[in-house]
Amino acid sequence: MTPRNLAVVTAGLSQPSSTRLLADRLADATKGVLDGQGDPADVAVVDLRDHAHDLVNAMLTGVPTGDLRWALDSVSGAEGLIAVSPIFNASYSGLFKSFFDVVDADALTGTPVLIGATGGTPRHSLALEHAMRPMFAHLRSIVVPTAVYAASEDWGTGGGTRALTDRIGRAAAELAALVGGRGAPDSTDPFADPTPFSELLAGPE
């Protein structure tokens, strides 16, 4: 069978990036669950840092320069999406928002999404719930119940580490269940299968 397409969007700015680290762990965990179900997946990682200038170009002109076209196509064509941003000023980063502002409005309709975020302090964890989840609701995506937030202390030693791992596992299982339960992708292509003119002439309603 053809492997599932998963896309990862990560908006970390530093290198190495803890946001990328979290994104990779979420992707590995999801892939692991799908593999275990005999449903292998390919993962395309879109590291937004590499596309920052192209994103501004696309916002100004509508023309996706450089590799941005590839990044947009990877996300639009994904059967499941993992989206991870650092939390800046109580919300996802501007770069993260810019990317999803450039993605086609309907591209993520019905797509299962796992959301994650990183930050210096656990006090910003609800940004996932009050900022990122509503954005994907607007895009008519299906966001899994468990959102994964990793603060600096979660990467350290102690009891917190286990909690993060458990949370990653739970979120990955939720995403894998939605991706694995999907039928064939909706193949309505208005270019391959246009609305006949008689229907256009009859008008809406």
């Binding site: 501004v56 100004l60 002109t61 023309v63 996706p64």
Partner: peptide, 16 residues
């Protein structure tokens, strides 16, 4: 006005 202050001339010529 339409594409200024965005991509370079070379990038734009490549894509359009």
């Amino acid at each position: 006005p339409v594409y200024g202050h965005g991509p370079t001339l070379e990038e734009f010529a490549e894509e359009t």
